[in-house]
Amino acid sequence: MQRAFSSFVRGGNSALPGYKLSLAATLLWTGFFIILPLIALTLRPWQDGIGAVVNELHDTRMFAALWTSFSSAALAALFNIPLGMLLAWALVRGNLPGSGLANALVDLPLALPTAVSGITLATLYGPQGWLGAPLAKLGIVVAYSKPGIVIALMFVGLPFVVRTVEPVLKNLPRDLEEAAALLGARPWQIITRVVIAPLVPALITGFGLAFARGVGEYGSVIFIAGNQPFHSEIAPLLVVVRLQEFDYSGATAIALILLLTSLLALALVGLARRKFSVWGDGA
């Protein structure tokens, strides 16, 4: 204990100058900007007493919103797996014409400010939009309902899947596919046993990252979602609604659940990657 403390004060075995200064600056910075907010977030729901917390657990609108957020984020991440895999494969192996442009476009959802994505997707899939109008003729309504939420979350989550699958695919020896073909494997067998199997840890990571992002996503969703309580209202929006009602405890309870879910998803990703890793940790 005492040794750990003295090591903390001296900065381990390094003799480089500046330890105390950089330690003080970092503790000040993270203390004010991260630890203090986290303490406030954890303590606030209990401030109005246990009764308020129990009351919060009877809030059916909160559970409806959480369900909308979790199910839409999971569906979007799931749909993104084949889409992301196809794009990653096309970028790495497909000799795709214009692959430089395609590569830059994959990062677009991360670079586009979320409010811009939001109003754009709402317009694109709206009743008069380029995609919304033809879909409406087929009887498919996307904007201002649950499918709209999934579409928006697919857009913001896609880069996570592509960018985690891509490096693993790049490191996968191409000879393996040829060897499997020479040994008489059918194309379907090659895809499932030789290409997809080693990608599983990366796919789980991509799914987890896209899910964690989707659960908390706000700006790109609220314009297309419709935002009807109990139906198409996402949990982050309900946080905002509760704040407007000056119900800080209610808002904080939802915020805590959102935070814990994202952290849990990311922790599970770490575990699952270790368990399913076939080729070592490539992702």
Binding site: P37, L38, A40, L41, T114, V215, G216, E217, Y218, G219, P236, L237, V239, V240, L243, A251, T252, A255, L258, L259, S262
Partner: peptide, 8 residues
């Protein structure tokens, strides 16, 4: 979540 980052 961005909303939570503001809420704190």
């Amino acid at each position: 979540s961005p909303v939570v980052s503001g809420l704190v």
